[in-house]
Design a protein around this nucleic acid. Sequence first.
DNA 1: AGTGATGTACACCGATCGGTTTTCTTTTTT
DNA 2: AAAAAAGAAAACCGATCGGTGTACATCACT
Lengths: 189, 189
Amino acid sequence: MTTDVKPSSRERLLEAAATLTYREGVNIGIEALCKAAGVSKRSMYQLFAGKDELLAASLERRASAYVAGLLPAADDGRAARDRIAHVFERVTSQSADPEFRGCPYLSAEIELKDPDHPASRVARQVKADLTSFFRAEAEQGGAGDPDFLARQLTLVFDGASARAGIGAEHLDGFLAPTVAILLDAAGVR
Amino acid sequence: MTTDVKPSSRERLLEAAATLTYREGVNIGIEALCKAAGVSKRSMYQLFAGKDELLAASLERRASAYVAGLLPAADDGRAARDRIAHVFERVTSQSADPEFRGCPYLSAEIELKDPDHPASRVARQVKADLTSFFRAEAEQGGAGDPDFLARQLTLVFDGASARAGIGAEHLDGFLAPTVAILLDAAGVR
DNA sequence: AGTGATGTACACCGATCGGTTTTCTTTTTT
DNA sequence: AAAAAAGAAAACCGATCGGTGTACATCACT
Protein backbone atom coordinates (compact mmCIF):
# COMPACT_ATOMS: atom_id res chain seq x y z
CA MET A 1 0.00 0.00 0.00
CA THR A 2 1.60 3.17 -1.12
CA THR A 3 -1.35 5.46 -0.55
CA ASP A 4 -1.99 6.63 2.98
CA VAL A 5 -5.55 6.16 4.13
CA LYS A 6 -5.31 9.47 5.92
CA PRO A 7 -3.38 12.50 4.72
CA SER A 8 -1.01 14.24 7.08
CA SER A 9 -2.19 16.90 9.49
CA ARG A 10 -0.47 19.46 7.35
CA GLU A 11 -2.30 18.35 4.25
CA ARG A 12 -5.64 18.19 6.00
CA LEU A 13 -5.13 21.71 7.32
CA LEU A 14 -4.24 23.05 3.90
CA GLU A 15 -7.24 21.34 2.39
CA ALA A 16 -9.63 22.59 5.06
CA ALA A 17 -8.23 26.10 4.79
CA ALA A 18 -8.66 26.11 1.03
CA THR A 19 -12.21 24.80 1.21
CA LEU A 20 -13.46 26.93 4.09
CA THR A 21 -11.84 30.20 3.14
CA TYR A 22 -13.22 29.79 -0.34
CA ARG A 23 -16.72 29.14 0.94
CA GLU A 24 -16.79 31.48 3.94
CA GLY A 25 -14.13 34.03 3.21
CA VAL A 26 -10.72 34.67 4.71
CA ASN A 27 -12.25 35.80 7.98
CA ILE A 28 -13.07 32.24 8.92
CA GLY A 29 -11.68 31.45 12.35
CA ILE A 30 -8.69 29.29 13.17
CA GLU A 31 -10.87 27.21 15.46
CA ALA A 32 -13.22 26.27 12.63
CA LEU A 33 -10.32 25.43 10.32
CA CYS A 34 -8.70 23.14 12.86
CA LYS A 35 -11.98 21.46 13.70
CA ALA A 36 -12.69 20.82 10.03
CA ALA A 37 -9.21 19.43 9.56
CA GLY A 38 -9.40 17.28 12.67
CA VAL A 39 -6.19 18.85 13.95
CA SER A 40 -5.62 20.51 17.28
CA LYS A 41 -4.74 24.17 17.42
CA ARG A 42 -1.53 23.23 19.16
CA SER A 43 -0.45 21.11 16.21
CA MET A 44 -1.50 23.76 13.75
CA TYR A 45 0.75 26.30 15.42
CA GLN A 46 3.62 23.87 15.25
CA LEU A 47 3.10 23.39 11.53
CA PHE A 48 2.46 27.03 10.63
CA ALA A 49 3.65 30.30 12.05
CA GLY A 50 0.13 31.70 12.17
CA LYS A 51 -3.10 32.16 10.34
CA ASP A 52 -1.58 34.34 7.64
CA GLU A 53 1.00 31.72 6.75
CA LEU A 54 -1.55 28.91 6.80
CA LEU A 55 -3.72 30.89 4.45
CA ALA A 56 -0.83 31.67 2.14
CA ALA A 57 0.33 28.06 2.15
CA SER A 58 -3.16 26.79 1.37
CA LEU A 59 -3.46 29.14 -1.60
CA GLU A 60 -0.03 28.15 -2.78
CA ARG A 61 -0.74 24.48 -2.49
CA ARG A 62 -3.86 24.86 -4.58
CA ALA A 63 -2.12 27.03 -7.13
CA SER A 64 -0.63 24.31 -9.26
CA ALA A 65 -3.84 22.29 -9.28
CA TYR A 66 -5.87 25.39 -10.02
CA VAL A 67 -3.69 26.45 -12.92
CA ALA A 68 -3.44 22.88 -14.15
CA GLY A 69 -7.23 22.65 -14.19
CA LEU A 70 -7.43 25.79 -16.23
CA LEU A 71 -4.60 25.54 -18.70
CA PRO A 72 -4.36 23.07 -21.56
CA ALA A 73 -1.64 20.44 -21.58
CA ALA A 74 1.78 21.94 -22.18
CA ASP A 75 1.98 20.93 -25.81
CA ASP A 76 -1.27 19.43 -27.01
CA GLY A 77 -0.59 20.43 -30.58
CA ARG A 78 -3.59 22.70 -30.79
CA ALA A 79 -3.49 26.22 -32.13
CA ALA A 80 -2.86 29.10 -29.73
CA ARG A 81 -6.38 30.34 -30.24
CA ASP A 82 -7.83 27.04 -29.11
CA ARG A 83 -5.47 26.85 -26.19
CA ILE A 84 -6.59 30.28 -25.01
CA ALA A 85 -10.23 29.39 -25.54
CA HIS A 86 -9.65 26.27 -23.48
CA VAL A 87 -9.06 28.35 -20.35
CA PHE A 88 -12.37 30.13 -20.77
CA GLU A 89 -14.18 26.87 -21.46
CA ARG A 90 -12.79 25.57 -18.20
CA VAL A 91 -13.96 28.52 -16.13
CA THR A 92 -17.32 28.36 -17.88
CA SER A 93 -17.79 24.76 -16.87
CA GLN A 94 -16.49 25.44 -13.35
CA SER A 95 -19.03 28.21 -12.96
CA ALA A 96 -21.86 25.73 -13.51
CA ASP A 97 -21.08 24.22 -10.12
CA PRO A 98 -23.38 25.81 -7.52
CA GLU A 99 -20.39 25.88 -5.15
CA PHE A 100 -18.49 28.11 -7.55
CA ARG A 101 -17.63 31.43 -5.90
CA GLY A 102 -15.28 32.86 -8.50
CA CYS A 103 -11.51 32.71 -8.69
CA PRO A 104 -10.20 32.10 -5.15
CA TYR A 105 -7.12 34.19 -5.83
CA LEU A 106 -9.04 37.25 -6.92
CA SER A 107 -11.40 36.87 -3.96
CA ALA A 108 -8.51 36.56 -1.55
CA GLU A 109 -6.88 39.73 -2.80
CA ILE A 110 -10.15 41.64 -2.63
CA GLU A 111 -10.98 40.39 0.83
CA LEU A 112 -7.54 40.90 2.31
CA LYS A 113 -7.11 44.41 0.94
CA ASP A 114 -3.47 44.20 1.89
CA PRO A 115 -0.98 43.65 -0.94
CA ASP A 116 1.70 42.75 1.60
CA HIS A 117 -0.25 39.91 3.16
CA PRO A 118 1.55 36.63 2.42
CA ALA A 119 -1.60 35.23 0.83
CA SER A 120 -1.93 38.30 -1.39
CA ARG A 121 1.56 37.71 -2.70
CA VAL A 122 0.70 34.14 -3.61
CA ALA A 123 -2.52 35.24 -5.29
CA ARG A 124 -0.73 37.91 -7.28
CA GLN A 125 1.78 35.39 -8.53
CA VAL A 126 -0.94 33.00 -9.69
CA LYS A 127 -2.58 35.78 -11.67
CA ALA A 128 0.73 36.80 -13.12
CA ASP A 129 1.27 33.23 -14.27
CA LEU A 130 -2.10 33.20 -15.98
CA THR A 131 -1.31 36.44 -17.76
CA SER A 132 2.05 35.00 -18.79
CA PHE A 133 0.32 32.01 -20.32
CA PHE A 134 -1.99 34.28 -22.26
CA ARG A 135 0.91 36.39 -23.43
CA ALA A 136 2.92 33.42 -24.62
CA GLU A 137 -0.04 32.02 -26.51
CA ALA A 138 -0.91 35.43 -27.92
CA GLU A 139 2.59 35.69 -29.27
CA GLN A 140 2.43 32.19 -30.64
CA GLY A 141 -0.91 32.98 -32.24
CA GLY A 142 0.46 36.01 -34.00
CA ALA A 143 -1.32 38.70 -32.01
CA GLY A 144 -0.49 42.23 -33.05
CA ASP A 145 0.12 43.25 -29.43
CA PRO A 146 0.49 40.10 -27.34
CA ASP A 147 0.89 41.95 -24.08
CA PHE A 148 -2.20 44.02 -24.67
CA LEU A 149 -4.25 40.95 -25.53
CA ALA A 150 -2.95 39.07 -22.51
CA ARG A 151 -4.06 41.87 -20.21
CA GLN A 152 -7.47 41.96 -21.87
CA LEU A 153 -7.90 38.25 -21.45
CA THR A 154 -6.93 38.38 -17.79
CA LEU A 155 -9.37 41.22 -17.24
CA VAL A 156 -12.14 39.24 -18.89
CA PHE A 157 -11.16 36.16 -16.91
CA ASP A 158 -11.41 38.01 -13.62
CA GLY A 159 -14.58 39.84 -14.58
CA ALA A 160 -16.22 36.62 -15.68
CA SER A 161 -15.28 34.65 -12.60
CA ALA A 162 -16.22 37.48 -10.28
CA ARG A 163 -19.62 38.00 -11.85
CA ALA A 164 -20.34 34.30 -12.16
CA GLY A 165 -19.10 33.79 -8.62
CA ILE A 166 -21.67 36.17 -7.18
CA GLY A 167 -24.35 34.67 -9.40
CA ALA A 168 -24.72 37.80 -11.48
CA GLU A 169 -23.78 36.26 -14.79
CA HIS A 170 -24.12 32.94 -16.50
CA LEU A 171 -21.10 32.28 -18.65
CA ASP A 172 -22.33 29.50 -20.89
CA GLY A 173 -22.81 30.75 -24.42
CA PHE A 174 -21.61 34.17 -23.35
CA LEU A 175 -17.98 34.06 -22.40
CA ALA A 176 -16.64 32.18 -25.43
CA PRO A 177 -18.02 34.59 -28.05
CA THR A 178 -16.80 37.53 -26.00
CA VAL A 179 -13.28 36.14 -25.93
CA ALA A 180 -13.53 35.37 -29.64
CA ILE A 181 -14.15 39.06 -30.34
CA LEU A 182 -10.95 40.02 -28.56
CA LEU A 183 -8.95 37.30 -30.30
CA ASP A 184 -10.31 38.40 -33.66
CA ALA A 185 -9.49 42.03 -32.98
CA ALA A 186 -5.96 41.08 -31.93
CA GLY A 187 -5.42 39.14 -35.13
CA VAL A 188 -5.17 35.71 -33.50
CA ARG A 189 -6.49 33.21 -35.98
CA MET B 1 -28.02 79.64 6.62
CA THR B 2 -29.58 76.66 5.03
CA THR B 3 -26.64 74.30 5.31
CA ASP B 4 -26.06 72.55 8.61
CA VAL B 5 -22.55 72.87 9.94
CA LYS B 6 -22.78 69.30 11.14
CA PRO B 7 -24.62 66.47 9.40
CA SER B 8 -27.01 64.35 11.40
CA SER B 9 -25.83 61.32 13.32
CA ARG B 10 -27.52 59.15 10.74
CA GLU B 11 -25.64 60.80 7.90
CA ARG B 12 -22.34 60.67 9.71
CA LEU B 13 -22.83 56.97 10.37
CA LEU B 14 -23.66 56.26 6.76
CA GLU B 15 -20.66 58.22 5.63
CA ALA B 16 -18.30 56.52 8.06
CA ALA B 17 -19.68 53.11 7.15
CA ALA B 18 -19.20 53.77 3.45
CA THR B 19 -15.66 55.03 3.91
CA LEU B 20 -14.43 52.44 6.38
CA THR B 21 -16.03 49.38 4.83
CA TYR B 22 -14.59 50.42 1.49
CA ARG B 23 -11.13 50.84 2.93
CA GLU B 24 -11.08 48.01 5.46
CA GLY B 25 -13.74 45.61 4.26
CA VAL B 26 -17.17 44.74 5.58
CA ASN B 27 -15.66 43.02 8.62
CA ILE B 28 -14.85 46.36 10.17
CA GLY B 29 -16.26 46.53 13.69
CA ILE B 30 -19.29 48.50 14.85
CA GLU B 31 -17.14 50.15 17.48
CA ALA B 32 -14.78 51.58 14.88
CA LEU B 33 -17.65 52.80 12.73
CA CYS B 34 -19.32 54.59 15.63
CA LYS B 35 -16.07 56.11 16.79
CA ALA B 36 -15.30 57.39 13.29
CA ALA B 37 -18.80 58.83 13.03
CA GLY B 38 -18.66 60.40 16.48
CA VAL B 39 -21.87 58.63 17.43
CA SER B 40 -22.45 56.39 20.40
CA LYS B 41 -23.25 52.76 19.87
CA ARG B 42 -26.50 53.28 21.70
CA SER B 43 -27.61 55.90 19.20
CA MET B 44 -26.51 53.78 16.30
CA TYR B 45 -28.75 50.96 17.46
CA GLN B 46 -31.66 53.38 17.71
CA LEU B 47 -31.10 54.54 14.15
CA PHE B 48 -30.41 51.12 12.61
CA ALA B 49 -31.62 47.64 13.41
CA GLY B 50 -28.09 46.26 13.33
CA LYS B 51 -24.83 46.16 11.47
CA ASP B 52 -26.33 44.51 8.41
CA GLU B 53 -28.90 47.25 7.98
CA LEU B 54 -26.36 49.99 8.56
CA LEU B 55 -24.17 48.46 5.92
CA ALA B 56 -27.02 48.11 3.47
CA ALA B 57 -28.20 51.66 4.12
CA SER B 58 -24.71 53.03 3.61
CA LEU B 59 -24.35 51.27 0.27
CA GLU B 60 -27.78 52.45 -0.75
CA ARG B 61 -27.08 56.04 0.19
CA ARG B 62 -23.93 56.02 -1.91
CA ALA B 63 -25.64 54.34 -4.81
CA SER B 64 -27.11 57.40 -6.45
CA ALA B 65 -23.91 59.38 -6.07
CA TYR B 66 -21.86 56.47 -7.34
CA VAL B 67 -24.01 55.94 -10.40
CA ALA B 68 -24.25 59.69 -10.98
CA GLY B 69 -20.47 59.92 -10.92
CA LEU B 70 -20.22 57.19 -13.49
CA LEU B 71 -23.03 57.87 -15.92
CA PRO B 72 -23.23 60.82 -18.33
CA ALA B 73 -25.95 63.42 -17.89
CA ALA B 74 -29.38 62.05 -18.78
CA ASP B 75 -29.50 63.70 -22.18
CA ASP B 76 -26.28 65.39 -23.05
CA GLY B 77 -26.93 65.04 -26.75
CA ARG B 78 -23.92 62.80 -27.29
CA ALA B 79 -24.02 59.59 -29.26
CA ALA B 80 -24.67 56.34 -27.42
CA ARG B 81 -21.14 55.18 -28.09
CA ASP B 82 -19.69 58.23 -26.40
CA ARG B 83 -22.10 57.91 -23.51
CA ILE B 84 -20.98 54.32 -22.94
CA ALA B 85 -17.33 55.28 -23.28
CA HIS B 86 -17.93 57.98 -20.69
CA VAL B 87 -18.54 55.38 -17.99
CA PHE B 88 -15.22 53.71 -18.68
CA GLU B 89 -13.41 57.01 -18.77
CA ARG B 90 -14.83 57.74 -15.34
CA VAL B 91 -13.68 54.47 -13.81
CA THR B 92 -10.31 54.93 -15.47
CA SER B 93 -9.86 58.30 -13.82
CA GLN B 94 -11.20 57.00 -10.49
CA SER B 95 -8.66 54.20 -10.58
CA ALA B 96 -5.83 56.73 -10.65
CA ASP B 97 -6.65 57.63 -7.05
CA PRO B 98 -4.38 55.60 -4.75
CA GLU B 99 -7.39 55.12 -2.47
CA PHE B 100 -9.25 53.34 -5.24
CA ARG B 101 -10.13 49.80 -4.21
CA GLY B 102 -12.45 48.84 -7.05
CA CYS B 103 -16.21 49.00 -7.26
CA PRO B 104 -17.56 48.99 -3.68
CA TYR B 105 -20.64 47.05 -4.75
CA LEU B 106 -18.70 44.24 -6.34
CA SER B 107 -16.37 44.09 -3.34
CA ALA B 108 -19.30 43.97 -0.96
CA GLU B 109 -20.91 41.07 -2.75
CA ILE B 110 -17.64 39.15 -2.90
CA GLU B 111 -16.84 39.78 0.74
CA LEU B 112 -20.28 39.01 2.09
CA LYS B 113 -20.72 35.80 0.10
CA ASP B 114 -24.37 35.84 1.03
CA PRO B 115 -26.82 36.89 -1.68
CA ASP B 116 -29.52 37.32 0.95
CA HIS B 117 -27.60 39.83 2.99
CA PRO B 118 -29.39 43.19 2.84
CA ALA B 119 -26.24 44.84 1.57
CA SER B 120 -25.87 42.22 -1.17
CA ARG B 121 -29.35 43.03 -2.40
CA VAL B 122 -28.48 46.71 -2.66
CA ALA B 123 -25.25 45.93 -4.45
CA ARG B 124 -26.99 43.65 -6.91
CA GLN B 125 -29.49 46.36 -7.73
CA VAL B 126 -26.78 48.92 -8.40
CA LYS B 127 -25.11 46.54 -10.81
CA ALA B 128 -28.41 45.78 -12.48
CA ASP B 129 -28.94 49.52 -12.97
CA LEU B 130 -25.56 49.85 -14.61
CA THR B 131 -26.31 46.98 -16.96
CA SER B 132 -29.66 48.59 -17.76
CA PHE B 133 -27.94 51.79 -18.70
CA PHE B 134 -25.59 49.91 -21.00
CA ARG B 135 -28.47 48.03 -22.57
CA ALA B 136 -30.50 51.17 -23.23
CA GLU B 137 -27.51 52.89 -24.80
CA ALA B 138 -26.63 49.79 -26.79
CA GLU B 139 -30.12 49.77 -28.21
CA GLN B 140 -29.93 53.47 -28.92
CA GLY B 141 -26.59 52.96 -30.59
CA GLY B 142 -27.94 50.26 -32.86
CA ALA B 143 -26.17 47.29 -31.37
CA GLY B 144 -26.99 43.99 -33.01
CA ASP B 145 -27.62 42.35 -29.66
CA PRO B 146 -28.02 45.10 -27.04
CA ASP B 147 -28.44 42.68 -24.17
CA PHE B 148 -25.34 40.75 -25.09
CA LEU B 149 -23.30 43.92 -25.38
CA ALA B 150 -24.63 45.24 -22.07
CA ARG B 151 -23.54 42.07 -20.30
CA GLN B 152 -20.11 42.26 -21.92
CA LEU B 153 -19.69 45.85 -20.83
CA THR B 154 -20.70 45.07 -17.26
CA LEU B 155 -18.25 42.17 -17.21
CA VAL B 156 -15.47 44.42 -18.44
CA PHE B 157 -16.47 47.09 -15.96
CA ASP B 158 -16.25 44.68 -13.04
CA GLY B 159 -13.09 43.04 -14.29
CA ALA B 160 -11.43 46.41 -14.77
CA SER B 161 -12.40 47.81 -11.40
CA ALA B 162 -11.49 44.60 -9.61
CA ARG B 163 -8.08 44.37 -11.22
CA ALA B 164 -7.35 48.06 -10.86
CA GLY B 165 -8.64 47.93 -7.28
CA ILE B 166 -6.07 45.33 -6.26
CA GLY B 167 -3.38 47.20 -8.14
CA ALA B 168 -2.98 44.48 -10.75
CA GLU B 169 -3.88 46.60 -13.75
CA HIS B 170 -3.53 50.18 -14.84
CA LEU B 171 -6.53 51.22 -16.87
CA ASP B 172 -5.28 54.34 -18.55
CA GLY B 173 -4.75 53.73 -22.26
CA PHE B 174 -5.96 50.18 -21.85
CA LEU B 175 -9.60 50.14 -20.92
CA ALA B 176 -10.92 52.52 -23.58
CA PRO B 177 -9.51 50.62 -26.56
CA THR B 178 -10.76 47.35 -25.10
CA VAL B 179 -14.27 48.72 -24.82
CA ALA B 180 -13.98 50.13 -28.33
CA ILE B 181 -13.35 46.63 -29.66
CA LEU B 182 -16.58 45.37 -28.11
CA LEU B 183 -18.54 48.36 -29.36
CA ASP B 184 -17.16 47.88 -32.86
CA ALA B 185 -17.99 44.19 -32.83
CA ALA B 186 -21.53 44.93 -31.66
CA GLY B 187 -22.04 47.41 -34.46
CA VAL B 188 -22.33 50.49 -32.27
CA ARG B 189 -21.00 53.42 -34.24
C1' DA C 1 -38.46 75.79 36.21
C1' DG C 2 -40.22 71.36 34.86
C1' DT C 3 -40.54 67.53 31.61
C1' DG C 4 -39.67 64.31 28.16
C1' DA C 5 -36.92 63.21 24.34
C1' DT C 6 -32.24 62.67 22.43
C1' DG C 7 -27.73 61.48 22.75
C1' DT C 8 -23.15 60.33 24.95
C1' DA C 9 -20.21 57.61 27.83
C1' DC C 10 -19.27 53.41 29.56
C1' DA C 11 -19.74 49.13 31.83
C1' DC C 12 -21.38 44.89 30.56
C1' DC C 13 -23.23 40.52 28.05
C1' DG C 14 -21.93 35.98 25.85
C1' DA C 15 -19.38 34.65 21.92
C1' DT C 16 -15.49 34.51 19.22
C1' DC C 17 -10.98 36.16 17.62
C1' DG C 18 -5.73 34.65 17.11
C1' DG C 19 -2.66 32.48 19.94
C1' DT C 20 -0.51 29.85 24.18
C1' DT C 21 -0.23 26.55 27.77
C1' DT C 22 -1.25 22.48 30.26
C1' DT C 23 -2.76 17.84 30.62
C1' DC C 24 -3.59 13.52 28.96
C1' DT C 25 -3.66 9.95 25.46
C1' DT C 26 -1.88 7.81 21.49
C1' DT C 27 1.75 6.35 18.71
C1' DT C 28 6.37 5.36 17.64
C1' DT C 29 10.94 3.95 18.80
C1' DT C 30 14.02 1.17 21.25
C1' DA D 1 7.58 -3.62 27.98
C1' DA D 2 9.68 0.93 28.82
C1' DA D 3 10.75 5.28 27.23
C1' DA D 4 10.18 9.04 24.24
C1' DA D 5 8.00 11.72 20.85
C1' DA D 6 3.68 13.46 18.95
C1' DG D 7 -0.69 14.95 18.97
C1' DA D 8 -5.52 15.77 20.72
C1' DA D 9 -8.46 18.08 24.00
C1' DA D 10 -9.41 21.76 26.53
C1' DA D 11 -8.57 25.47 29.59
C1' DC D 12 -6.89 29.84 29.24
C1' DC D 13 -4.93 34.61 27.57
C1' DG D 14 -6.24 39.47 26.34
C1' DA D 15 -8.72 41.54 22.70
C1' DT D 16 -12.56 42.25 20.01
C1' DC D 17 -17.05 40.91 18.05
C1' DG D 18 -22.30 42.48 17.72
C1' DG D 19 -25.45 44.08 20.81
C1' DT D 20 -27.67 45.95 25.61
C1' DG D 21 -28.40 48.22 29.94
C1' DT D 22 -27.66 52.10 32.80
C1' DA D 23 -26.45 56.63 34.22
C1' DC D 24 -25.73 61.31 33.13
C1' DA D 25 -25.75 65.35 30.25
C1' DT D 26 -28.10 68.28 26.78
C1' DC D 27 -31.80 69.98 24.41
C1' DA D 28 -36.53 71.71 22.99
C1' DC D 29 -40.96 72.66 24.38
C1' DT D 30 -44.32 74.27 27.54
